[in-house]
Design a protein around this nucleic acid. Structure first.
Lengths: 236, 236
DNA sequence: AGCGCACTACGTACGGCGTACGTAACTAGG
DNA sequence: CCTAGTTACGTACGCCGTACGTAGTGCGCT
């Protein structure tokens, strides 16, 4: 008889400790914490099965007993940092509560800059994700809308937060960790962009660049985007 | 004297044909089109420097004469498919025009499912991206807002489109191309989720799942998200 | 005109990656 | 107690991006 066909995996459905066999030497929490530490310190590309196994003092392939595929390791990481959320008692002002949560998300992503890149609809069912979602819905209790719409609100906020913070992080990361200086990078981009814009093919872009041009306050942009998103639902 | 230090690269600033040396045997357009074709047919993971060079009939390392880093190849790809946009004369109804553009984006991403994953603020300066941005601003001419705010509108729409279509594609892709059937996957996820929700720890989630539960119309969700986003700016 | 240099082309090689597979030790359920 | 399923781990395969060295080529400058 052929071996069993591959089965769908949801890592959260698989028990941490199997009945038979030797007692596992490590816990899922250990593994996740190690991967998070490595990613925070050396970037997400440093998170390889070899590296994490090494950090844990186990052979590379032993890690596969705990984490069947690398993607699952990412899933563990996202769940692990999601435990950092604080869920204070909802105030009754759903807008303020959701804003607070979004700000927490932003801080979380700044603490773990690899997080936006791992955000995926697929990871939406980890234990801490469920708790997060339940808390969001609790904050939205005062809002008289069907749950379907509330879910869309949560999705919209998540989308805004993820995209905007990803942008913040991308620009910040490019500043450091590149073999050339930020000034050089800026100079090259400005020179190129200036040339294009000066060509006259993009009059509105040119006008846009000419407009005031004070330094962009990323946090203010973030707050505005959030408020607009919430207003869209408040009006509903 | 040591060799020159690494210099910042903007591929669009580097001329396609250098003055000296033999005439290049391929064009950037060829290369981009080949990479797009491979990504469309076999997925973005099939786009490797070796593979693309092979498809073009050149040695692997020759490709590096055209594309200094793999990231630049991605940038070429994004720019290439951005040429598929149609830019009809703006109607004067900025909302309708922007909606039309967003729908074009959605279709573009469905034609090239790898596109959302390559979207990055960094690629915002390719020739076709500039043309897209200029056209967006043209559509927004009737709207009396500073260019800074119009740029935020464009960013907000882009964010919504990218996130939502990425979700659509992720769920669709997981359905095919997995070694197990969609029904199995569904069954496992439902079983796990059902168990969690039934535990009583997530009463609002449970209520949400219980609510009507007709099949989700992804396109309708997309349209609603867009309209809410635009309303946020119309009210400003 | 002709020289030199920047460029094209390409093979080889290095150090990584994810992970399939085989083997040995071990422990809990029947 | 036995045995089946688990843990642990080394080896190996086929990929990947790309640094580097070498050879040939044709434009720009003197």
């Amino acid at each position: 008889m052929a071996g069993r066909a591959a089965e769908p995996e949801v890592i959260w459905a698989r028990p941490e400790r199997a009945g038979r066999g030797p007692r596992p030497a490590h816990s899922r929490a250990d593994i996740a914490a190690t991967a998070v530490r490595v990613a925070d310190a050396e970037g997400i590309d440093a998170v390889s099965m070899r590296k994490i196994a090494g950090e844990l003092g186990m052979g590379t392939m032993s890690l596969y007993n705990y984490v069947p595929r690398k993607e699952d390791l990412y899933e563990l990481m996202v769940d692990a940092v999601s435990a950092e959320y604080a869920f204070p008692e909802p105030s009754g002002d759903w807008r303020a509560d959701v804003l607070g949560l979004a700000r927490q998300s932003r801080e979380l992503m700044h603490r773990h800059p690899w997080l936006p890149g791992l955000m995926s609809p697929v990871y939406g069912f980890s234990p801490n994700a469920l708790a997060y979602l339940e808390y969001c819905l609790t904050c939205l209790d005062p809002l008289d809308l069907p749950y379907g719409t509330k879910m869309e609100l949560v999705a919209a906020v998540t989308s805004v937060v993820t995209t905007y913070v990803a942008n913040e992080i991308a620009t910040a990361e490019r500043t450091r960790s590149l073999p050339w200086s930020a000034e050089q990078e800026q100079a090259v981009r400005i020179a190129y962009l200036g040339g294009q814009v000066a060509s006259g093919r993009y009059p509105r872009l040119a006008a846009s660049f000419a407009e005031d041009a004070g330094p962009i306050d990323l946090e203010a942009v973030f707050e505005r985007a959030l408020r607009r998103t919430l207003e869209g639902f408040a009006a509903e």
